[in-house]
């Protein structure tokens, strides 16, 4: 790690005012320090936000839940309200990382995890995300873990989070404070595709701080499933993951949400795919159609083309599991 200075404000406005050109906020630190040790991140100042009052989980007036940005991943997954009303979120969180990391990592920080692309992490090799303009060796290199949807000439990396896949499916809202004040960002607008600016993972402006995540009332507690496929049974990033949530009435789907992880630079959703399920019987033919729609335009590289078929099967399996009812 390069030398840096350190500050620990106790108020949000104080934290934001401390933020300078090469500052980073730190909470759990599980990804930031990891990257700093590899010289991928080289901040001059760390602003420790763990002293801010952002660690509560509260019900909102409209029946949703507001999660403070500093709530740890473990506490969130095991919170009674989340387990009961948003089991999809609890399951996605518990499918990620390790118990130790989940005890450390914050809710806000989880959104800001950076890709696990090998090339991004190895600061001796080219990478457009790490050093714009140097190239993307993954395109013609080791791309088994990489994107099949929404990738660009410049970058084929994927977002590594499990929690975010569930948050995307649940239509969460991100609360942000920054130099320009507070704003709310719909989850689907929070992360971005790489395009010509792969160095930007999300739409946060310089100095903005995530303060909370809000979940709407609809938690799909009856019919949801999180399916994660990876190279070992635990403690590995997803090749493909699926968050599936259904509202079913008399065997007919009234509302559906599907988000994919491990396939793109952001959790992947498709309105047409979800719409195709509405009014249909919660049966394999409908799931198959939705999978086709979700994966429209998918294209792979030398080592990851299998993900397209894997994702198709995973979507069908997750929808079938959700239709059967949320597993205990």
């Amino acid at each position: 790690m390069n030398p840096f200075s350190y500050a620990r404000p106790t108020r949000i406005d104080e934290a934001i005012s401390l933020f300078g050109p090469q500052s980073r906020y730190i909470a759990g630190g599980t990804n930031l320090l990891d990257l700093m040790k590899e010289n991928v991140e080289r901040p001059k100042q760390l602003i420790d936000i763990t002293g801010l009052p952002l660690d509560s989980i509260e019900e909102t007036a409209d029946g949703g839940v507001r999660i403070g940005a500093l709530v740890s991943n473990a506490d969130l997954a095991w919170h009674a309200l989340i387990e009961r009303r948003y089991p999809l979120l609890a399951k996605a969180i518990l499918a990620g990382a390790s118990p130790q990391l989940r005890n450390m990592a914050s809710t806000g920080g989880n959104l800001l995890q950076r890709t696990r692309c090998y090339y991004f992490y190895d600061s001796t090799v080219p990478c457009n995300k790490r050093e714009p303009g140097t190239g993307c060796p993954a395109r013609d290199g080791l791309n088994r873990m990489h994107a099949i949807l929404g990738h660009s000439e410049q970058c084929i990396a994927v977002h590594p989070s499990d929690m975010c896949v569930a948050l995307a499916a649940l239509d969460a809202v991100v609360h942000v404070s920054g130099p320009q004040g507070e704003r709310r960002v719909d989850f689907r607008d929070f992360h971005r595709l790489p395009g010509d600016e792969p160095e930007r993972d999300n739409t946060l402006a310089e100095g903005e701080l995530i303060t909370a995540i809000e979940l709407p009332a609809a938690g799909y507690a009856e019919h949801s499933a999180y399916l994660k496929l990876r190279d070992r049974a635990s403690y590995a990033f997803a090749l493909v993951s699926v968050a599936a949530a259904l509202d079913i009435d008399g065997g007919v789907i009234r509302s559906a949400r599907i988000a994919l992880g491990g396939v793109a630079h952001k959790p992947w959703r498709d309105d047409a795919a979800e719409a195709s399920l509405i009014g249909e019987a919660a049966e394999p033919p409908a799931f198959d159609r939705a999978a086709q729609l979700l994966l429209q335009g998918a294209s792979g590289f030398e080592h990851n083309a299998f993900k397209i078929e894997l994702a198709r099967r995973a979507i069908k399996r997750a929808l079938a599991e959700a239709a059967r009812g949320t597993a205990a």
Partner: peptide, 19 residues
């Protein structure tokens, strides 16, 4: 590097002492 911080298990390698 797992230790118990305030009774909870964490990875001591990914957190700063100063925090």
């Amino acid at each position: 590097c797992t230790v118990l911080l305030n009774g909870k298990r964490i990875n001591a390698c990914l957190t700063l002492a100063i925090m």
